[in-house]
């Protein structure tokens, strides 16, 4: 009986480690795209001040500039 619970515990530990590994992989894969999205809302000054996190107020001018290029 005791052996069984020990075994089950070991399986849970293994499964948790597995989920953590995959989550870490997932974060590494998605991090560049997070940067991509966040940087699209930054002015040049905001980019220098905080390159990684979202900064407020959001800067929408990048999109209007891009749209102007698309329209041409």
């Amino acid at each position: 009986m005791e052996g069984k619970t020990v075994k089950r515990k070991r399986i849970t530990v293994k499964q948790t480690a597995l989920v953590i590994t995959v989550a870490a992989l997932c974060l590494t894969v998605l991090f560049p795209f997070w940067l991509l999205a966040v940087k699209s809302f930054k002015s040049f000054e905001q980019e220098i001040a905080s390159p990684i996190s979202l900064s407020f107020p959001l800067f929408f001018e990048n999109y209007s500039v891009a749209w102007a290029y698309v329209k041409e």
């Binding site: 499964q15 597995l18 989920v19 995959v22 989550a23 997932c26 894969v29 998605l30 795209f33």
Partner: peptide
């Protein structure tokens, strides 16, 4: 494949497709 938690496995499958 070895993940027992089906829901987590499915969610990860979506996330890894985003790139």
């Amino acid at each position: 494949f070895n993940m027992r938690n089906r829901k987590a496995s499915k969610a990860f499958r979506y996330l890894f497709l985003i790139p």
